[in-house]
Simulated scan of single mutants.
Amino acid sequence: MTPPLLGRHRAKDGPAFDPALDDAGLAAARDDLVRGRWSAARRLLARTGEDWDRRGHRVVVLARGTASAAWAREWQLAEPGSADAAVLLACATVFRALRGQDSPGTARALCRAAAAMAPRDPTPWLAVLLLARATGGHDERARAFDQVRARHRAHHHAHHLMAACLAEHQEGDHDDPLHEVYDFAAWAAEQAPPGSPLALLPVVAHAERYRVLARAGLTDPDPARSGHWATPRARQVLRAAFDWWLEWDTGTPGATGTHPRRLVDLNHLAHAKHHEGRHAEAAALLTRIGPHATRAPWSYPDRDPAAAFRAARRAALGVA
Rank of each mutant, 00 (worst) to 15 (best):
D175R: 15
Q191R: 15
E190R: 14
H169N: 07
G195Y: 11
H174W: 12
D176M: 03
A150D: 13
Y182R: 12
A186M: 10
L201M: 04
A186P: 00
H155V: 06
P177V: 13
V181A: 14
A154G: 09
A188S: 15
G172D: 08
D146H: 10
A188G: 05
A186S: 14
H152E: 14
P177M: 09
A164E: 11
C165I: 13
L201I: 09
R153F: 07
D173C: 11
A192E: 11
H160T: 01
A207G: 14
C165F: 00
H157C: 01
H159A: 14
V181N: 03
L161K: 02
L201S: 06
R151F: 04
Q191S: 11
R211N: 04
H160K: 00
P197Q: 04
L201E: 10
A167L: 03
L178M: 09
H179N: 10
V212N: 02
A158H: 09
L161Q: 11
A144T: 02
E208F: 02
L200E: 10
E180H: 05
M162L: 14
A189W: 11
A144P: 09
A144I: 09
W187V: 12
L213H: 03
R151Y: 05
R209K: 12
V203P: 01
D183M: 01
H156D: 10
E208G: 00
V204E: 03
V204D: 04
P202E: 07
Q147F: 06
D175K: 00
P194F: 09
E208C: 12
R149A: 14
H152F: 11
A199W: 04
R211M: 02
